[in-house]
Amino acid sequence: MQVELSERDGYTILAVEGEVDFHCSPDLRKKILQVLDDSGDLILDMGGISYIDSSGVASLVEGLQHARDHKKQFLLANVQDAAMQVLKLTRLDSVFSIHESIDAAINA
C-alpha cells in the first residue's frame, strides 16, 4: 500500500494505491486520523485500491466517526467496483458520502 498526500481547495486529498489488508490498514488508519486532526477536511481517493479487506473498511469507518465528532468532512472518491461491493455488503454505501471523482467531491 502506498499513500500520497496533496492539497486542493482547502481539502486534503489522500490517494491510496495497492492492497489494503490487515498488514497495512493500521498505517492507513493512523494516516487518516492524523490528517483529520492536523489539516481538517479529507477526501480519500480510492481509485488505486485494488483490494480492501474489512480491516481497511473498519479503518474508514473509524475515520468517518472521528471526522463527525470533530465536525469535519470525510469523503470517499473514485470508489472502485470491488471496494463498492464490500461497502454494500455491510450497507456502508449509504453511510459514507461517496463521490465519483475528486472534483465531484470538492463541489459537493
Binding site: F22, S25, P26, R29, S55, V57, A58, S59, V61, T90
Partner: peptide
C-alpha cells in the same frame, strides 16, 4: 493480527 482494538471492534460489529 496487531490491529488496534478499536478497529477489531468495528470489524466484529460489521
Amino acid at each position: 493480527t496487531r490491529l488496534d482494538p478499536n478497529t477489531m471492534r468495528i470489524m466484529a460489529r460489521m
